[in-house]
Nucleic acid binder design. Structure first.
Lengths: 237, 237
DNA sequence: CGACTCATTGAGTCATATCAATTGTCGTGG
DNA sequence: CCACGACAATTGATATGACTCAATGAGTCG
């Protein structure tokens, strides 16, 4: 059974046995981090590379007035700061939303991969490009879709991303309404409103603060969701 | 006098003479492209690399209902698709907003740089990371700022980015209200409204469809603009 | 005295209502 | 393509009450 990171990297295309072994070796000494805890703060110098093994983390910024904006969700298999070392400092913070398992990877391990394992390097590169593509789609989502469709679109994406690394298991998302509001760029009150709407329409179900999707196809239709931006079709290269 | 690309790459840090010469060599056989013309279409396989020498281009997507979302502005010195070759296909289109001068760079030239010129490779990498940082800031901008402040913030960014590559010359931006609306995720009518508002407050001036900024400091204050995300301080590494 | 129950409290979250601000839609004319 | 007006829809601001859950501390029983 492969770990999440291997599963994710294989989405970019096949990897030689040797490289896969290297990947498996990277995931060592995981540590647990509580929910709502910063992993990296804005302004920090860039040090180790962090990988999410379990749970949900996010990139975020705080505005002068205290409001928060979440710019990316980091799911199992996602790197927090693979390449930010090139930039001198972090221009945003990274924190957990739920309890997480994190692996710290020494930057030298990455450097060695870049030197000695071209196929694996390519896979890592692929990851960062997909992250960027997701960011672009979020921008479209935020700019051109109403909050209810935006949430639907977002849920479709997370559903697919979790499935891609083998973490579907029924797909239940456990985020507070405040977190969802910060994700969608709306207020918590409005988040409540649109969630109530989607629930009434049977597009989502909520029990015990967990969101589930009874009919993913219906939700995709509602959101006008097209998944090409996630580049999961393995047509890399 | 260095060309725009050299100026931009030097923002990442110093480069050896040899690498600078390579950069200068890249910029050959520029061609002119009319305003509102696609350079690359969504779904296209990835081929040559394109570089903007003059004018303004953008990344954009079209929604099923025909609305457009502009996700990035490509200014002189910006690459259109430096690294997208890793992904099999373009998930968005790239088109000109104003008339542009474009250089087509064979992908092999990039491959050679990656093989033989580590400092230059690092500079190219820096470019893509800054692009991503800008994308994140746009997401914050769109999610958490009112349209007028959002426009102000956007103008501050363009001002700085043009200045960084030596293209300030008074800073006049010549975009239609529709383009600005597609940039900010609003309607053209609303774009008209907020532009009228900023003009009334003396924060921008418009003449002959060109936006100018009489007092950049006042605009920065209004937008609560912080420029750290552009990583122009040369503290790379 | 120690272990246990069980109100009380307070923080955090969710649900809902009302009113206001922002933004979209449509239409008209320059 | 820009300007502007009138009206509608979406979203924000503010307030209130219900609910959960953990922490606290008083009281009870062994």
């Amino acid at each position: 059974m492969l770990n999440v990171l291997s599963r994710k990297l294989l989405l970019a295309g096949p990897l030689p046995e040797e490289d896969l072994a290297v990947v498996e070796g990277l995931v060592a000494n995981p540590r647990t981090v509580q929910a709502r805890t910063d992993i990296i703060d804005r302004g920090d110098p860039t040090s180790n590379v962090h990988l999410v093994l379990e749970g949900i983390a996010c990139r975020y910024k705080l505005l002068p007035d205290g409001r928060r904006s979440i710019m990316a969700l980091l799911l199992p298999g996602d790197f927090c700061d693979l390449n930010v070392a090139i930039l001198g400092h972090m221009d945003h913070a990274i924190g957990t939303l739920t309890a997480c398992t994190i692996v710290d990877i020494p930057r030298e391990a990455i450097d060695e991969i870049v030197e000695k394992h071209p196929p694996l390097t390519r896979a890592l590169w692929w990851c960062t490009l997909v992250d960027e593509a997701v960011l672009r789609e979020w921008l479209v989502n935020m700019g051109r879709r109403r909050a209810d469709r935006q949430l639907a679109h977002f849920l479709c994406e997370i559903h697919l991303r979790l499935e891609a690394v083998g973490r579907r298991d029924g797909f239940h998302l456990s985020l507070t309404q405040e977190m969802i509001a910060d994700l969608l760029g709306i207020t918590t009150v409005h988040a409540q409103r649109i969630m109530a709407g989607l629930r009434q329409d049977g597009l989502i179900a909520i029990e015990d603060r967990k969101i589930t999707v009874p009919d993913i196809e219906a939700l995709r239709d509602f959101a006008e969701f097209e998944d090409d931006y996630l580049h999961l079709n393995g047509s890399a290269g």
